[in-house]
Structures are given as structure tokens and as C-alpha cells.
């Protein structure tokens, strides 16, 4: 465990909590892509099946349980409790275009052709693109609430910090996981355009709105 990994995890946790609190406090999930949140719930579910097979540390187990519980709570709030506020008309990204290719790729390129390992690989690939429905929704409506942009910032920051963590681990532990690194790079690149808007607009007190 190094400082980049830890702050990455905490940044991820912050993103998840910010989104949950935003929905809970405003009693609304307007502007939030339910599809992205469903994909994240699927990501955590398929990745953390190793909770049943291997124990790594108390930290590891508790964080996994928190991530899974929060992602299911978010999906519940969007599709059940605050369904009336869900902006389904703008959440039109075709998720099968992500899930099907990612599913195929995880069968073809993995560390080990075993069910748990294929599901882990699937979750790594899927996580790298799971934010696309949310970014698509923002590009469609042309704007995002400031709190939603904070959520996206911490979510992107988490993967960026993981990249530094992997460089650290490569040099100091000889650890290198090509699948995680390639997917992590792809994931971070997807946030670059957003990071630019976040720094130039949101941090200067302006609302994130895209030119028409």
C-alpha cells in the first residue's frame, strides 16, 4: 500500500459518497445516468466475487463491501425510490455496445481462463468505459450540475492516482498487471476532456455547460 493507492481508493470512495449524498439530499437523480450506475454495480459485483474465495486484508474486504453496498444503494435510489426524477429520455446510450464487446474481450485476453478470473477481467474492462453513458448524457443535455462534476472529478482522479500507484509498484515491488494498466490508461483518457472543463470552468465558479 502506497500513498497514491490509498488516496486513489479514498478518491473513489469520495466520488461514490458524493453521488449518493447528492441524490439523497436533493431527493432527485436528475442529470445522473442510471445506466452508468448499473454498469458500476455490475463492475463491483463481478470483480469482488473473490470476497468469497480469498482474504487479503480487513481494509480490502471492508472497502469492497462499502463499494458494492453504495453502488447498489445508488441504483436503488435512481430506479426505485427517486424514479420519478430519473431523466431516462436523456440516458439513451446503448450499453449493449459496451457490455458485449467487453464480454468478448475478457474471454480472449485474460490472465487465466477460469470463471472468476474472466469475471475479474470483464469488470476491469467494463469499468474503463462504464462512465460513457454519463458523459454521453452530459454531452446530450449540454450541461451538468456542479455537484455532478465533483463526482466525475473524484472518479477520474481515482484512476489517475492508480496510474501513479502502478508506476510506483512497478519500480518498488516489481508488480505489473498489463490488463489493469491498459484499461486504467483508457479509463483515465476518457476523463481528460472533462478534467479540462472542470479546471477551466467549475473551479472558477462557473457551471459546466457545453457550447451548443
Amino acid at each position: 500500500m502506497n500513498i497514491f493507492r490509498l488516496t486513489g481508493d479514498l478518491s473513489h470512495l469520495a466520488a461514490i459518497i458524493i453521488l449518493l449524498l447528492k441524490i439523497w439530499k436533493t431527493r432527485s437523480c436528475a442529470g445522473i445516468s442510471g445506466k452508468s450506475q448499473l454498469l458500476f454495480a455490475l463492475v463491483f459485483t463481478t470483480r469482488y466475487l473473490d470476497l468469497f474465495t480469498s482474504f487479503i486484508s480487513l481494509y480490502n474486504t471492508s472497502m469492497k463491501l462499502i463499494y458494492v453496498a453504495c453502488s447498489y444503494a445508488t441504483v436503488y435510489l435512481i430506479y426505485m425510490k427517486f424514479k420519478a426524477t430519473y431523466d431516462g429520455n436523456h440516458d439513451t446510450f446503448r450499453v449493449e455496445f459496451l457490455v458485449v464487446p467487453v464480454g468478448g474481450l475478457s474471454f480472449l485476453v485474460n490472465h487465466d481462463f477460469s470463471p472468476l478470473e474472466i469475471l475479474w477481467t470483464f469488470s476491469i474492462y467494463l469499468e474503463s468505459v462504464a462512465i460513457l453513458p454519463q458523459l454521453f448524457m452530459i454531452s446530450k443535455t449540454g450541461e451538468a450540475e456542479t455537484i455532478t462534476t465533483h463526482y466525475l472529478f473524484f472518479l477520474g482522479l481515482y484512476r489517475a492516482l492508480y496510474l501513479i500507484n502502478w508506476i510506483w509498484r512497478y519500480y518498488f515491488e516489481g508488480f505489473f498487471d498489463l490488463i489493469a494498466v491498459v484499461a486504467g490508461v483508457v479509463q483515465t483518457i476518457l476523463y481528460c476532456d472533462f478534467f479540462y472543463l472542470y479546471v477551466t470552468k467549475v473551479l472558477k465558479g462557473k457551471k459546466l455547460s457545453l457550447p451548443a
Binding site: 480469498s54 472497502m63 478470473e117 500507484n165 516489481g174 505489473f176
Partner: peptide, 10 residues
Amino acid sequence: SMDPAKHDEL
């Protein structure tokens, strides 16, 4: 150098 069955990252 990693055991694929033990992914220690989140």
C-alpha cells in the same frame, strides 16, 4: 509477478 487469483487492488 502476481497471482491472478489474488487481486489486492480495488
